[in-house]
Design a protein around this nucleic acid. Structure first.
Lengths: 339, 339
DNA sequence: CTATATTGGTCAAACGTTTGACCTAGGGAG
DNA sequence: CTCCCTAGGTCAAACGTTTGACCAATATAG
């Protein structure tokens, strides 16, 4: 049974004053003699008084809580985003109410409702991959609850968001592959209708263009393709592929497997760059070159942004595009004289 | 600015009844005519009424919230624990208030206070590695807030906990190594004064005993040893080590690296088993045998246990020891005729 | 026809805190 | 001495909800 915690009225009764006086003594609102103030404070300390945030919330209509919706925790990326968010919110004295959508839009909608019901002061959310409904997002905005989207956004709805600069990230990777002399660069695209998929593909195309290399349809594959493995194999054997840039690190590992089967040496015959900088990249052999999205910073930045919005509703609608970092490791061949 | 949400009194005023009637109509507490009931319900729906849990909490002295303290999120293990917890609590209609200790006891103490202040209905916590203070744990227990420790515990304080059966987990791994004929089995221990370190070591010893193999001091190393890498190298070269069981998967990868340097073939010359079943284990080559601790189940079990305690304070103090699963992969040599 | 039970509701307190309005006693100015 | 100011407090409302006590009207039993 939860023990009753001592309240401001308990102190008031013990000292023959009113709760108001105790409140003012504790919060420094004047109107209380120095003597009484000290008396109250010392008794409060002695009894281990701790204010009840629930009562405060009810009155103030703010909960010092921010809601977070993430698709899942198991990818390293989201763990880092979460850590980044936590680092900021905990310092600012906010609690974190966390929900998972499991990449399922219905759960996402449910979570949104839950958070709204809980009267969180703001919401950070990564919308699920498959998203075609936006009523719940609209509802959040209508409710006046500050909202910042993280990592993914949709053009269907005008919200502030913080994302990684996928275009530049992809561009830098493919640009690098070109620089070290790759002539046939394979790209494996991510899930459809995700802005990240689109932007990374654009970055790939732009880098090719910069180096006056043609875009070859047959070198662009889709991760959702059930025959993906077959098609990669085909690419590697028929099209003299000497470079690969994949939507994710895990897709890069698929290439590792096939290369090993086909006795293709990485990086001597094939340079590979993945995306996301999962920790596994540095443990696998050869260590995988990849694009780091600074997820911790992304989380921290979203949280800072949201806190700003909470404290000043007039803060401008903004879009933050976070720089990526190209991590070159053993999976890219080394050239002596770099162009 | 957060929009005022419509309250039970708003409905009451609109319909010329008292808030009590509305409350009873909505919660089915009788004492309201069918006609009025329908009227109230339909207006509530129309206005999008949603009860304010904060007001309820204040009255009921329960928040439908459970507090969670984890050391960090970035290890896959804790992500899975978190996912397991979330799967249970969300179904049961509880919110999750999450804090990180960063393996730092002071932060852990601060988090505990925060959760207590927030009046959570129960706490799930993984205490940090270095722990010598228990006043905060005691304070939780004194407050009457149900508490369940997860993954780690301390004998200094009598709390219920859910852990993985490290002894059996380690035993099964080393037992397997013995069965496939390993004669000199290296063990790398984990951080000092962690119960998991101790129990896995005990499992190692017990398995050796079962197979009548002597415990060789020189084959037991400490992960915290600054000269660890040197010592592993020494073991591998001098002591005819043909099996290795490590406290973590990552330590196993250290062995992979050294084996590769020393041209020792895994698994032909050296069979390796790690611990934790990090996803990377299946991506690395050769895929790593390891001990799966069922972290998702651990989280789920802790959450179920805590919910029981919350609903019935008389529930017995118990200790749950979760079964592990030995995952045999490519890093263990295959023998035709198994003893 | 009276006593009683039932139905359908109202009232007010309670949860813990904050805060504006109000009160009172004492001190200083005129 | 009266008037006003101020320091130091009290009172009550408010936040949104639940709930036990109460009450009036109607129906039922005897």
């Amino acid at each position: 049974m939860k023990k009753k915690r001592i309240s401001i009225t308990d102190i008031a009764n013990a000292l023959q004053v009113t709760p108001s006086t105790v409140s003012r003594a504790l919060n420094g609102g004047g109107k209380v003699s120095e003597k009484k103030r000290l008396e109250i404070i010392s008794l409060a300390k002695k009894l281990g008084y701790r204010p009840n945030p629930i009562a405060k919330s009810l009155l103030a209509n703010r909960t010092q809580t921010i809601g977070l919706i993430l698709p899942e925790f198991t990818h390293h990326f989201y763990s880092r985003v979460l850590a980044g968010i936590e680092s900021i919110t905990s310092k600012a004295g906010y609690q974190l109410l966390i929900c998972t959508s499991n990449e399922n839009q219905n759960q996402e909608i449910k979570s949104t409702l839950t958070l709204l019901d809980a009267r969180v002061d703001g919401i950070l959310a990564t919308i699920s991959k498959m998203n075609d409904k936006f009523e719940h997002i609209q509802e959040v905005m209508d409710s006046g609850t500050p909202l910042v989207l993280v990592d993914r956004f949709s053009e269907e709805i005008e919200t502030p968001y913080v994302i990684s600069d996928d275009f530049k990230g992809a561009f830098s990777a493919v640009d690098y592959l070109c620089q070290i002399g790759c002539k046939n660069i394979l790209h494996i695209k991510g899930p459809d209708n995700l802005s990240t998929t689109f932007n990374r593909f654009m970055g790939y195309k732009e880098a090719l263009r910069k180096h006056n290399m043609p875009l070859k349809e047959e070198l662009v594959l889709e991760s959702s393709d059930p025959k993906l493995v077959e098609k990669i194999r085909l690419c590697l054997t028929r099209h003299q592929v000497d470079g690969a840039f994949t939507y994710s690190d895990y897709l890069a590992f698929e290439i590792y497997k096939l290369a090993s089967q086909l006795k293709i040496q990485i990086p001597e015959e094939l340079s590979v760059i993945g995306y996301a900088d999962e920790p596994i990249s540095t443990y696998i052999s050869p260590t995988l070159s990849t694009v780091n999205q600074q997820p911790f910073e992304m989380g921290a930045m979203s949280a800072r942004y949201l806190l700003n919005k909470i404290n000043d509703p007039e803060v401008a609608l903004e879009v933050k595009n976070l720089e990526t970092k190209l991590m070159i490791r053993e999976s890219c061949k080394v050239v002596e004289t770099q162009s």
